[in-house]
Amino acid sequence: MKATVYVTLKNGIADPQGLAVRNALDSMGFDGVKRVRIGKIIEIELEDGCLDETKVEEMCRSLLANTVMEDFTFEMSGEKR
């Protein structure tokens, strides 16, 4: 099992890093970039049958996302590596 967690800044939270990237793209000549928001993807490989969605959600709330500032979503997939 694999869980893929997407952590993004909540709406309305300033993103200085995203702003810097936007400005860099702009100065490199990539016109028309309105806004850049930066988040992260976390891939977690799980032992089969041990952890369910409730547990992954708990991981997100207690460690992977700072829920004061960030939202998260995740998807579970069955593929084994």
Partner: peptide, 12 residues
């Protein structure tokens, strides 16, 4: 009350 969080940008 999460909307109260401000983010600093020291480079700015």
């Amino acid at each position: 009350r999460k909307s109260a969080v401000q983010v600093g940008d020291p480079f700015m």
